[in-house]
Simulated assay, not measured.
Amino acid sequence: MLHYCLQALIHPRPPGPGAGLRLAIWQGTGTAATPDAVQENLERLEQVAALAAAQQAQLLAFPELYLSGYIVTPDLARALAEPLDGPSLGRVAAAARRHGVAIACPYPERALVAGEERFFDAIALFDRDGTLLRNYRKTHLWGPDEKRCWSPGYRVDEEGPAFTVHQVNGFPVGLLNCYEAEFPELSRRLALEGAGLILIPTAADAWAMLSTGERTDRPYPDVSRTLIPANAIQNQCFVAYANRCGEETVNGMAMAAYLGNSVVAGPHGDLLVAARPRPTLLLADCVPGDYAPLHPAGTRYLDDRRPELYG
């Protein structure tokens, strides 16, 4: 049985098609780096999908590398990685279909790209009927450990474009991954593609054990109250940051502790919901119609850009 807090800023009814999106974020604890951990995390995903559906959520998001856990070594990353059409993502698609809620599930991906087997820190986005809308591969890898474990996405033409927008409940959603929240040009690129919501799973930690056996010497920067609202206001869209909380264990040993700083920011840079560091199901209705123009006379940053000056 899941023990969690419910934190919500929602309307009496969820947004209609095209009007917005009721977003749910699961912030919880979990296990990592073993096949048993993957099964445990899948079972929790199915439970959370039922909880989110009961709240009439239209999109449910999980933290970075949710299925495997974030803490993996290069060897374990390769052992746990699965293809997009593998059994784990099949269960996620089935959960989306069974509960009628779209699901963004981060996972370790194994794929053949340009004739070479590669491994990616990926996010699979399924629609409410279990249809795959997007498989996004992290493009900007953080630190030496991620570069040891994963390949950066979209270095090969056959992978297609990196930054795309997809309709959930008729509302345009774009994906980024953790460290990528800290590159303003990535959020801007998705906004220029029409994103009304930029969803960013993360694994922002208070401390973590690196694959070298060393412990990180400082917490991950908490961008939830700074860059996340800034990305939202400067792009006039919703931005969501989905993190873990508490300890992540590997075979019963604590290997990381997470900040629990999941938030949803609105187009005025306001925080709709912001989690404390405890297991929480966050709910927010992302509805552009709730907001008047930020500037008088309908002035918009995206309209007033002069890209010929800065590329």
Rank of each mutant, 00 (worst) to 15 (best):
V273W: 05
L199N: 04
Y4H: 01
T249E: 12
R225T: 15
E46V: 06
Y70D: 08
G30Q: 03
N41T: 12
D121G: 08
E46C: 05
R137W: 02
R137L: 03
G170R: 01
H140Y: 15
N251S: 14
A61T: 10
L125D: 04
G86H: 06
G16K: 08
T73H: 08
L190Y: 04
T131L: 06
L210D: 15
Y66S: 11
E146D: 12
S68K: 01
R13P: 00
A102Q: 02
V113W: 04
R44G: 00
H3A: 01
Y301R: 13
A102K: 01
A49D: 00
E214T: 11
V264K: 04
D121T: 05
P172Q: 10
N231M: 11
N251F: 08
V273D: 08
L176N: 04
E109C: 10
N251Q: 14
T31D: 01
L192F: 10
G90P: 08
A284L: 07
D304M: 13
R97M: 12
L199G: 03
D303L: 08
L67C: 05
V250F: 10
R78C: 00
A114N: 13
S88D: 11
N177K: 10
L302S: 11
T280N: 06
V156L: 05
N135Q: 03
K138Y: 09
N243Q: 05
A181R: 06
L281C: 01
R97Y: 13
A49W: 02
I71T: 14
S151R: 00
L175E: 06
T29I: 09
A77D: 02
L281H: 00
E82Q: 14
L186E: 09
T164Q: 08
E43S: 11
P201M: 00
H166P: 13
A181Y: 09
L133R: 12
P172H: 10
T202P: 03
A37L: 07
D127I: 04
L176S: 04
G20M: 08
R137S: 00
E247R: 05
A50Q: 02
A195W: 03
